[in-house]
Design a protein around this nucleic acid. Structure first.
Lengths: 115, 115
DNA sequence: CTCCATATAAAGAAGATCTGAATATAGACG
DNA sequence: CGTCTATATTCAGATCTTCTTTATATGGAG
């Protein structure tokens, strides 16, 4: 699962949202780090609907513009759960490796003497 | 950063390794979940050297075959560190969203009465 | 003698994302 | 009154990484 997809599912986890709202929610949830591109978003939504991770929810017309709402399916929540576990495992492994690296290189600290 | 790249940097964090050893190390570190493809690996190594995250270390000839070792640069370690922090932030956010979802849906537990 | 593990390389396809532009309307600002 | 910005979706084309497949080479196991 790629990052934009991950953030779309994450943003949809709490409640149904329409495309444009997802762009803002991903931005908010990530403290401004994730800027979903419109092209990426709508293509990903179509794909996620095909895969059954997301479902069309309802459609509203606000100020002449259609808002198409999507919601996370149970399969989608399960997939996001699995992805989170996978990512956490990778993060833990990388942290352990980086710690070992620092241990190997930072030999000065091992010889630190309290004077 | 994509996953194969992430695992290459993670596997290189502790000591220099050659390509084939990286395939095995990524497999081991991920408990068999990550199978680096040879095509992916060697292409990624070239790219990472270009980007300065990895450096050629030394070359050995074992049983007529060349082993080209690579090691993680300080920039590479910094990049992996940053990636780990980024991933952890995403994981935390997704977990919070998934918890909120469960809270919203699993209303039965809120009304649980000790009889 | 063939199969398997070791070790790297390179070409072509696949697939998600990115870039940029198009379309449409309401409200704000000057 | 006209322009700019925010809202909202769509599409075409490019990019980039990864995947697949194939090729090459050799030592050891069966």
């Amino acid at each position: 699962m790629r990052e934009p997809t991950f953030w779309i599912l994450t943003a949809l986890a709490t409640e149904p949202r329409h495309g444009y709202a997802l762009i803002q929610e991903a931005d908010r949830l990530s403290d401004g780090r994730v800027k979903l591109q419109a092209g990426t978003l709508y293509a990903a939504l179509d794909r996620l609907v095909d895969e059954g991770l997301v479902q069309p929810d309802r459609e509203e017309i606000v100020r002449g513009r259609a808002r198409r709402y999507y919601r996370l399916t149970d399969d989608g929540a399960t997939a996001l759960d699995a992805e989170v576990a996978r990512l956490q495992a990778g993060v833990n492994t990388a942290n352990a490796q980086l710690s070992a690296r620092r241990f190997g290189l930072g030999q000065a600290t091992a010889g630190l003497v309290i004077a």
